[in-house]
């Protein structure tokens, strides 16, 4: 077995936990790479997972929860990893250079965090869509790839109408732009919106806004990274 990221051989560590596991474990990432992949632990904003010194609501979230349009549409966001230069490198290779298989680097972390925060919820997953041209460019939708790591029903309830890259816009621009999504079909029950990044939260709030109107009871979001 070799590490998906650095290609060094992985020597499995056999301890009491796994020594009776006759099939062996599918380890995809070596210990040193795993350590660089920083999970969000410790105090963070309870609503958006942003790391902070205390467990209080962060400034952005205060704004979101009193916003005339978006107040109450998104209950909370949970993110698995924090953004680091190492993570940026992985995202580059995965998203922009199309190394799809790298999604497995996140698998264990994503599954663990999902079980901790949403294990009892049994939600329907709604990945944030790409526009048709962008999907064509990249070959896959990263949000969908993340959703597929979880063994739950996926509902592509949203489509993207505009083709603008969020990354190229400022915070102000993001908040002021129109809803980039359209609802394809009605939804029901608890909904978990999946995306790769939570930066300002604008995209997810737009999506949640539509889904709420489309019949969802509760809406949370689950994102790979909180930047």
């Amino acid at each position: 077995m070799h590490c998906l990221w650095c290609h060094n051989e992985i020597i499995p560590e056999i301890t009491w936990r796994n020594f009776l596991n006759i099939f062996g474990e599918n380890i995809v990432i070596c210990d040193s790479c795993k350590q660089k992949l920083t999970c969000i632990v410790g105090p963070a904003c309870p609503r958006c997972s942003r790391s902070s010194k205390n467990e209080l609501l962060c400034g952005d979230c205060k704004q979101w929860s009193t916003h005339p349009t978006f107040a109450g549409v998104l209950s909370k966001n949970v993110s698995v990893f924090s953004y680091s230069p190492f993570m940026k490198e992985i995202m580059n290779k995965w998203k922009y250079r199309g190394d799809y298989v790298l999604v497995n680097l996140f698998k264990a972390g994503v599954q663990k965090r999902f079980k901790e925060d949403f294990g009892k919820l049994n939600p329907t997953l709604v990945p944030i869509p790409l526009s048709a041209t962008r999907q064509q460019e990249r070959g896959f939708n990263q949000a969908e790839a993340i959703a597929q790591l979880l063994d739950l029903p996926i509902d592509d309830a949203l489509t993207r109408v505009t083709n603008e890259k969020q990354a190229k816009k400022s915070r102000q621009q993001r908040l002021q732009s129109n809803n980039p999504f359209q609802l394809k079909n009605e939804v029901q029950g608890p909904i978990l919106v999946i995306d790769d990044l939570y930066t300002t939260g604008a995209t997810l709030h737009w999506a949640a806004y539509l889904l709420k109107r489309g019949g969802a009871t509760t809406i949370d979001s689950f994102t790979l990274i909180r930047s």
Binding site: T15, W16, F19
Partner: peptide, 17 residues
């Protein structure tokens, strides 16, 4: 032989502990 291997084995398995 039994003592030696049993102890070494379980200590190696306990490396994390």
């Amino acid at each position: 032989f039994q003592f030696s291997f049993l102890v070494t084995f379980s200590l190696i398995l306990s490396s994390k502990i």
